[in-house]
């Protein structure tokens, strides 16, 4: 240990470069109050700019009356709201976005993920918007319009590869029960129409309450309505200018 060079982090011969002072270092950078005030000012400024002001702008948006006399966005049914909680707790957002980007950005409109792009008004009633940042799977903002069949969704959740060969979505079998057919007089609520080769012999496959709520929520995802002019306009694929 007496040989100082024997340690990998040990002292090395000094070099004296760069010791001449070019400008006098500012006195203020020696004061804790100055640094604290400076760093707090920067983060508070960005809070105001990126959180408070957009929040204020967006919160002023009011629901609008559509041509057909309905209020938009409509309130979600209780079951669909429960379904959104399932969507959130299962973490669907990590593979599915819920936003159709503006002006055909990234080809979102051409791909048919919406007849128009999403606007802030679409989300005004949502306490937790699940916009998402990943598209391992398709965008779901308008899945209810695109795929209105409840049975399709049950099959797809039970085993995605029945309806979508080649899909890498995990099966959500834990959202389904298998009920023995024998001894039942009635067909259970939420029975899934299993295709022959996937059916469970002697059993009904039945969607649980959570699966039914989730599908109800997915079916409620339909934000293709044409908005009145100037109501937080979205672009429609036929009007894209690029």
């Amino acid at each position: 240990m007496s040989d100082t060079r024997s340690h990998p982090d040990g002292p090395r011969p000094d070099d004296d470069d760069g010791r001449q002072v070019w400008l006098t270092p500012p006195e203020s950078m020696q004061h804790s109050l100055f640094i604290a005030a400076g760093v707090l000012a920067t983060v508070i400024a960005s809070y105001v700019g990126l959180v408070a002001i957009p929040n204020w702008q967006v919160n002023r948006l009011e629901p609008v009356m559509l041509d057909n006399g309905e209020t938009y966005p409509a309130e979600r049914s209780e079951l669909a709201q429960k379904g959104k909680d399932v969507y959130i707790d299962l973490g669907c957002v990590y593979c599915h976005s819920q936003q159709v980007r503006q002006n055909d950005f990234g080809g979102d409109l051409s791909r048919g993920w919406g007849m128009r792009s999403s606007v802030p008004l679409d989300y005004t009633r949502e306490e937790t918007p699940v916009l998402g940042t990943m598209r391992t799977g398709p965008d779901l903002r308008n899945i209810g319009g695109r795929q209105p069949s409840r049975q399709w969704h049950y099959l797809h959740l039970y085993n995605p590869r029945i309806t979508s060969p080649g899909s890498t979505m995990p099966p959500f079998r834990f959202l389904f029960d298998t009920v023995p057919i024998e001894g039942r007089t009635n067909v259970p609520v939420g029975r899934v129409d299993m295709p022959e080769e996937h059916s469970v012999p002697g059993h009904y496959v039945v969607a649980t309450d959570r699966a039914r709520a989730l599908v109800e929520y997915l079916l409620s995802l339909d934000h293709d309505q044409t908005l009145p002019e100037n109501a937080n306009r979205g672009t429609d694929p036929e009007q894209v200018d690029r």
Binding site: M1, D9, P11, G18, W22, P25
Partner: peptide, 14 residues
């Protein structure tokens, strides 16, 4: 002492 210098210090290159 053997392990380390009382560094780091600033240099003042423009």
């Amino acid at each position: 002492i053997a392990r380390e210098f009382e560094r780091p210090e600033d240099g003042y290159q423009p």
